[in-house]
Computed example of a mutant assay.
Amino acid sequence: MTATEDLAARPQSLMLSFLGIYLLDRDTAVYSGSIIDVFARVGVSEEAVRSTLSRMATRGLLTRHRRGRRVYFGLTARATEVLSDGYRRIWHTGAVNRDWDGTWTLVAFSLPDNRRSDRHDLRSHLIWAGFGLLQNGLWIAPGVKDAASIVDSLGLAENVTVFTATHAKPTESADLVHKAFDVPAIAARYNEFLTRWDTPDPVPALPDDLARQLVLHHDWLQLVRQDPHLPAEHLAPDWPAIRAEHTFQTLAAKYLPTAGAIARDLMDEITVPASA
């Protein structure tokens, strides 16, 4: 599968990257036809764009604004929250955890077989938040995590125990890292990013810097959202996230001026009230 075919198969994650770059923190909505024009640059069909916009509006992530025969899409408060989290992960949290203080957040739970759906939802939320499975029913993450909000959102407060701790002998933090997390798989994802982007001509099939900007941000956001932000002191000195983060930041700065100019020419926007 080529790069554009892969993106065409996942238009919603690409849409979130687009919205994060061009609508976050702006009280504007963009014409659906403009979004179709942007996404055509990365091989996403008009039908897929319209379906994605409709689905995201139904899920409460986008608002519709009609001006004559044109429909514009803006962000809801929920979308703003999701996109702000992505922004923090990209530009503030980063890919390399050099400031870990030795603390772990632990989540323990036991749910019977007749609550498999609850168990699946909890596991999915924990993985998304950077937790790894240490042993049956016990999940850990480096640092202090807001596990309470995960548990409360799922209505599982009575079934879950949350606490913070530090390791004690004979347990070593390095052992916890490698027991609870698939470190080789995390490294492989960063190396795949480097193969694609750390080259003289990244993704040559893409037509311009707007397309490259959009795909670059999409690829990087998917990476950092899957990264549990493990302590750098327990990873190899040549941990590929270090070079990958530098590559992302360098290319993001390189594409920004040209991509922004292309986007301004393409995008028909209107001012709308702030999301609520």
Rank of each mutant, 00 (worst) to 15 (best):
V160E: 14
M267C: 03
Q12M: 08
F193L: 01
I140N: 12
P237Y: 07
R67T: 04
R89D: 06
L111Y: 06
A188F: 01
R10G: 03
A180D: 08
E46F: 02
R50Q: 15
V272A: 12
L111F: 06
A141V: 11
L106V: 15
D118Q: 10
A205S: 04
W220N: 07
Y255P: 11
T199I: 02
H234A: 04
T171Y: 09
K179M: 14
P231W: 08
L194M: 03
S124Q: 15
V177C: 14
V30T: 15
A95G: 12
M1K: 07
E172M: 13
R78W: 02
E5Q: 15
F163L: 15
S110I: 00
I21S: 05
K254A: 08
F39H: 07
R78K: 05
A205T: 02
E172V: 13
R115T: 03
A187E: 07
A29G: 05
Q12W: 04
P112Q: 05
N114K: 06
S34V: 02
P204A: 01
H120M: 08
D238I: 05
T199G: 00
F39K: 13
L176K: 09
T28S: 10
I21D: 04
A205W: 00
V30P: 04
I150L: 15
L126D: 09
D99H: 06
T103E: 03
S275M: 11
H92Y: 12
A263I: 00
D152C: 09
V151C: 14
G143P: 05
V71R: 07
P204L: 01
A205R: 00
L14A: 11
V160C: 10
I242Q: 10
I242W: 04
R10C: 11
Y72N: 10
V144D: 11
